[in-house]
Design a protein around this nucleic acid. Sequence first.
RNA 1: GGGUCAUUAGCUCAACGGUAGAGCAGCUGCCUCUUAAGCAGUUGGUUGAAGGUUCGAAUCCUUCAUGACCCA
Length: 500
Amino acid sequence: MTNTNESTLANNLNRLQLERLGKLNKLKENGVNPYPYTFSRTHMANELQEKYSQLPAHTETKDEVRVCGRIINERNTWMFIDLIDDSGKIQLFCHKESLTSLLIEQLKLLDKGDFIGVTGTIRRTKAGELSIRVSDYTVLCKSLQPLPDGFDAFKDVEDRYRYRHLDLIIHPNVKQNFKSRSKIIAEIRQYLDSHNFLEIETPVLLVSAGGADARPFQTHHNALDIDLNLRIATELYLKRLIIGGFERVYEIGRVFRNEGISTRHNPEFTMLELYAAYGDYNELMDFTENMLEYVILNTVGKFQFEYIDQMLNFTRPFLRISMIDSIQKYCNYDFTSITNFDEAVEIARKLNVPLSKKEDSVGRIINLIFEELVSPELIQPTFITDYPVEVSPLTKIHRFNSRLTERFELYAYGREIANGYSELTDPIDQKNRLLDQAKLKSAGDEEAMPYDKDFIYAIECGMPPTMGLGIGIDRLVMLLTNSASIRDVIAFPTLKPLSD
RNA sequence: GGGUCAUUAGCUCAACGGUAGAGCAGCUGCCUCUUAAGCAGUUGGUUGAAGGUUCGAAUCCUUCAUGACCCA
């Protein structure tokens, strides 16, 4: 439903609701509390399905069980009820010979969507459906809103995100994405914890939001009367922890970027950043492969799996190729010795890559050509290495080439999955690069990083060689759950509010 | 930002200038049966909003709102 008037799912008191209110009142008149406090069950639905999987059709047992959940369907005037809980579905069999006439009569006051708890014995029907012959039931919640129903119910994508509770009820497979997400994050933590990483939470509210190229959200602290930004990355604070002497730290946290919304972008999303002292980006690529291997093995269960229209293979090692070599490979232009800006502009023109004011250096042109023409080709997991220094203000200069940095990004299905560096630890170099960023910012580039003098002070106090990795958790979960949209892996994605 | 499409009953959709309809859901019955149960009957509408054209608009035009997809 996309209309914005009064007749919305959420607030329209319609005749269907009036029916339910009438039933609620009748229940109360019968002395039933429609909103009781507890119910103790003996089994989840799927436990019963598994336990009695060998029970033949048309068999009664005397095994008494208690289950509870939401009514999603009813057949033959409440003789058969489909009940769902978090684990799955079980059919209830309400035969008039097994229930008091009062309880039989009261079935008419139930609706699809209500919660009930039942007691009964296990049987399998003639038709082969495992069921519970109900001897007693109790209302656990009277629902006052009709659920969308029918074979094709609730297809509108926006409604599914806006009313996620309904999406989860109606499309039980949607729950699987969030279970997978939880498992993926748990496995990442397990891997990092077992490799002696310490999880530390860094601030969300910052005077200076740096660590990435992005516009921050702005807010205000009343008591201090200062403007604050929501963080766009956790990098600069995790590095302070390395400086402080923690040698392996990470954070899995929400970051906020004030940018557009798409199937791959949500304004708030979850990032993993980790930093480990005494390693460089080569070691970090090995580490990233190992960690992903562990996480994929314990979640997807296999290294080769389908994503949308492609079969991806995450078997180690992933392809490693430098950005310049990748352009040579896919575009047939060799930037190895090109240092002249006009020459780079000419190549971009020949390649039909339109440049903006932002592409004011050879390095930025190389980066844009890569993003436009090469990255979409990187379907199988590929490390792109050695980024131009102009687009990597927090990365150490490449040990063999001063125009490049020791940075990699991991691509799969043409999308960036991870971003890692040999972290820049030279305070003088870092200071100059942030000053360059500040110049860009004051020249109007709202995504350029601010000069953070506290961070420079920290790094001047001495930072060991360090490798640092960032992984967009949402995009990783998309890949591992075969989800086309980031909104399929964020329970409550950002939406425009409905107008009243 | 640009293009295309969409918005009609609780849900899924018809009707495309001439009486707003169907299936499902709901309700009333039948049927101790079922697997999207079935059968009979029945309720339910400010056609996303505002203007305009017309004897007549869900339908054509304009603007707006919201969304989906594609492109930057």
